[in-house]
Design a protein around this nucleic acid. Structure first.
Lengths: 236, 236
DNA sequence: CCTTGGTGTGCACTGAGTGCCACGAATGGT
DNA sequence: ACCATTCGTGGCACTCAGTGCACACCAAGG
């Protein structure tokens, strides 16, 4: 029904947006589980089959823009240079997600209230967040390839960045999107950076590191280890 | 069918175990998605309705013991005293999960291979891990209630502990359960503790390690670092 | 004997998701 | 103008997970 014409300027399919708005209208007024896909397509005036053409599952309609945001994040991480400080780069990547949420505050708050109440949506959100975390961790693994504990550090730092980001994001969502979201996230990410500070990346350690890692073979002479530590730590 | 008697000593229902073994036999030989619940109950020789009496969903049969482990973890965290160092307590709680995996190495490895290949099971595992992480975070939030950034630190540290634990656990699972799982997890958790200000590395490892990693915050007193190294390295 | 109560089972139903095919509207080549 | 292809869409039937309900069985106990 209605127009088969695309809106000028955007190449976006209007049907997809119609499904999202119809779905959220029903989700908000009668609940997620009480709304069937048939209800959504009836309200949107489209066939049931078309719903699953745009969204592989009913849960996907709740997170319509995350696929795009994930692609942006991977592009952002792939586009950096090797001179970037890895942890800072990952924090900037996390800010992309925040920006997406901040673009539609009311929508984000509605979705937050929905996912908080529906266990199935919380579980689905976890898989979405997990993909972001994996993207960050894979980037850090590449950057930390030279380190001895590179994969461990990459996984832990990625998890910490995501947790800090989500902590700030959720507090912003809980306040109905009042205030500037970026300041809270900056603050949370600063905490992570203070814990994992710019680590000593071997080739070019430009900025001073907060943490120094020393690896010693068991049986190595103690004076040699102390000498090594004093050289890097004692200067502070 | 079969015995209606409980096995002496254990109050476990035998039907539940029969369903788990039947399910895994089919999952391994023809895949998870290619196996229906009807197939499982047919092999186990029970009614279809009984499956859902023991497992709320098909995915739950893959993680039959996590509910119990989560209860153990919350009990463990609730049973501590206020004198405990919070981060260390949380690390010990994480070790409970590792212990559960290590109790049945072959089963754990089979399940790992399964969850790695099936996206639906990976998503379900995320929700399981999330509940562990929430238990750790809630504990830390209580312990950090006095701090100004208590909830942030609690969330970030819990996420880091879980990530470190999972990193070590997965590397152990990838090696078919060879070697001692606890050493890798101890190592990974030591990294997290070093990053978040707890004591550098409190307990000396029982097994002799080939390398000793010491992580020190810049600005920490040198004598303290040397003392820590001497305690672990010098004893050899 | 007839109650309870717990446990296992059969049946019918809802709803998500899929495969297949048919229809109509562009598009494109001759 | 004609046919052929493609694409977006809708309709139909089907599988399968999960649920509600009722019934059968078996214990203990009046």
């Amino acid at each position: 029904m209605s127009s088969a014409k695309d809106e000028a300027g955007t190449g976006k399919p209007p049907m997809r947006d119609a499904l999202v708005t119809a779905a959220f209208r029903l989700f908000l007024e009668r609940g997620y589980e009480q709304t069937t896909v048939d209800d959504i397509v009836a309200l949107a005036g489209v066939g049931r089959r078309s719903f699953f053409r745009y969204f592989p599952s009913k849960e996907d309609v709740v997170f319509p823009d995350h696929e795009r945001c994930l692609a942006d994040m991977t592009d952002f991480l792939a586009g950096g240079s090797d001179d970037d400080e890895p942890v800072g780069r990952v924090c900037d990547a996390a800010r992309l997600v925040l920006r997406m949420y901040a673009e539609n505050p009311t929508f984000s708050v509605q979705r937050y209230r929905l996912t908080k109440r529906v266990p199935g949506l919380r579980a689905y959100e976890l898989s979405v967040v997990w993909r972001y975390e994996r993207a960050l961790a894979e980037y850090l693994r590449r950057r930390f390839a030279a380190r001895r504990e590179g994969t461990l550090q990459a996984d832990v730092i990625a998890a910490a960045v995501v947790a800090a980001h989500n902590n700030a994001l959720r507090s912003w969502l809980r306040s109905d999107g009042q205030g500037e979201a970026s300041t809270a996230v900056d603050h949370a990410l600063a905490y992570v950076r203070s814990a994992f500070g710019g680590a000593p990346v071997p080739p070019a350690a430009e900025q001073p590191a907060d943490v120094v890692v020393v690896v010693a073979r068991r049986g190595a002479p103690l004076w040699r280890v102390v000498q090594e530590i004093e050289a890097t730590l004692g200067r502070d």
